[in-house]
Simulated scan of single mutants.
Amino acid sequence: MRTTTGLFVLVSVLAALQPAAAAEQRSSLPWSAPATTQIIVEDRKFRSGDAELSGTLYMPLSGKPVAAVVVTHSASSPLRGASLYDHLKTVLPALGIAVFAYDRRGSGQSGTKDAGGNFTILADDAIAAAKSLKTDPRIDPRRIGTWGLSQGGWISPLAASRSPDIAFVIAVSAPVVTADVQMIFSSTNHLKANGYSKADIDQMVAARKAVDNYMRGTVSRAEAQAKLDGIKTKPWFKYLYMGETFRDREVSGWRKEIENDPLKNLEAVTVPILVLYGTDDAVVPVADSAERLKSVAPRMPKMQVHVIAGADHAMQMSADLKTSLDPKHDGTERPDSPEYFALLSSWLAAQGLVGR
């Protein structure tokens, strides 16, 4: 068993680091052998509430029903074709696991109306995707789980807490703090990485807190807008990921986000869950998140938590801090940490999900 699992891990790491185009080019060479893993790629649609969503299934050719993973989205990668998800489409089928990636509602081919910051809607979309896979005889309906990174790491546990159709959860770089705390941490590191002063950081934090407190009903809209107006011309404003104004708190998606405590969602998960962080994550407060998870670990025997040396928010080791925090690179991330691939593969094997 150890030898087989180790082989799977090695195959996964090597496969994930090879660009798909290069692999396709090599397979056309006259001396090439056929690949051991044959992948069937199928576009398919499914309904979630009043929305029709569109995705792509990556199905390993197998003589028996296989496990499957539904991909939930990071905030900056709403499309199924995002580079962030490419490694899953290579690694998991090599392990005998299907992957279903879809366009988040309001993006790509999944309509024009988004979830408005409502994580419950996004979680229910993932549940609907899992239910649609259960009708496919090539997929084992008892072994369908979710994978999500960053915001997706919030959505995946929430989906599992709301439905028995989710059999396991993989949450990567998921902040176990509320969204307002996470964004202040992230924006502070963005400004630090780009050499801005403590005074700039203090001004940024004050503006963010004013908007957040307006959403909580403790600060007037005029006061919060004035704080925002005071920084909107700053060269570092883009690192806040905020607009120059904000919606009324009664309809604001941001209010919905900051009122959601991810720890409560995690505590409600009863299926096996793998939580992965990188030591060099400047977007998520890993130390605080790990500490909060430690507090609930005795009540969650099926949860495993690992902090991966040298990995950033997207499980990359190759990107320097300033590059990884540059907004122009959002949506272009490609995980490349060997430890991440090894832990992901070995955990899936330990759960009995690997099979060919």
Rank of each mutant, 00 (worst) to 15 (best):
V99D: 02
S132Q: 10
I127L: 09
S77D: 12
S28T: 08
Y58P: 12
V66A: 04
L29V: 10
T56R: 14
S12T: 05
G117C: 00
Y58E: 12
Y102C: 06
A98K: 02
S32D: 05
R44H: 10
G63F: 01
V71R: 02
P19K: 02
A16C: 10
V91K: 11
A126K: 03
T90L: 12
A16H: 07
W31L: 01
S28M: 07
I127T: 03
L57Y: 10
E52D: 12
S76F: 14
L61K: 15
Y58D: 09
Q25G: 04
H87T: 03
L57N: 07
V41L: 09
K89R: 11
A22H: 06
V13L: 14
Y102V: 06
K134L: 14
L95R: 02
S110A: 13
S77V: 10
L84N: 05
R44M: 15
L95C: 15
A22F: 12
G116R: 06
H87W: 13
V70P: 04
E42H: 10
T72N: 11
L14Q: 06
P60R: 12
V71G: 04
A75P: 01
E24P: 00
Q38V: 12
G63M: 04
G81N: 09
R44F: 07
S74A: 15
S83Q: 07
H87C: 03
S110D: 09
D114I: 12
D86K: 05
A115K: 05
A98D: 06
R26V: 01
Q38K: 13
L92F: 05
Y58S: 15
F100D: 00
S54Y: 14
A75F: 06
L79M: 11
T135A: 15
I40F: 02
L88A: 01
S76C: 08
L133V: 09
S110N: 12
V41H: 04
E24Y: 01
S27D: 02
L88D: 00
K131N: 09
A15V: 03
A129G: 07
Q38M: 02
L92H: 02
D125V: 03
L53S: 09
Y85E: 14
S32L: 00
I40G: 01
L88P: 00
T90I: 10
V41D: 04
L95E: 09
D43V: 13
L79G: 11
G96M: 05
V13M: 11
L61V: 13
T90A: 12
S74D: 12
A75K: 08
S76H: 04
L61N: 15
T135S: 15
A128W: 01
S54E: 14
M59S: 15
V91T: 15
L95K: 03
E24S: 05
F119N: 05
S77F: 05
G108S: 12
L29I: 04
G96Y: 10
P137F: 13
A101C: 12
L122P: 10
A68E: 00
I97L: 08
H73M: 08
P34Q: 11
L95D: 00
L92S: 02
F119G: 04
R44T: 15
L17A: 11
A16G: 15
T90W: 04
A82E: 10
R26K: 10
W31I: 02
D43F: 13
G106Q: 11
S132C: 10
L79H: 14
D125F: 02
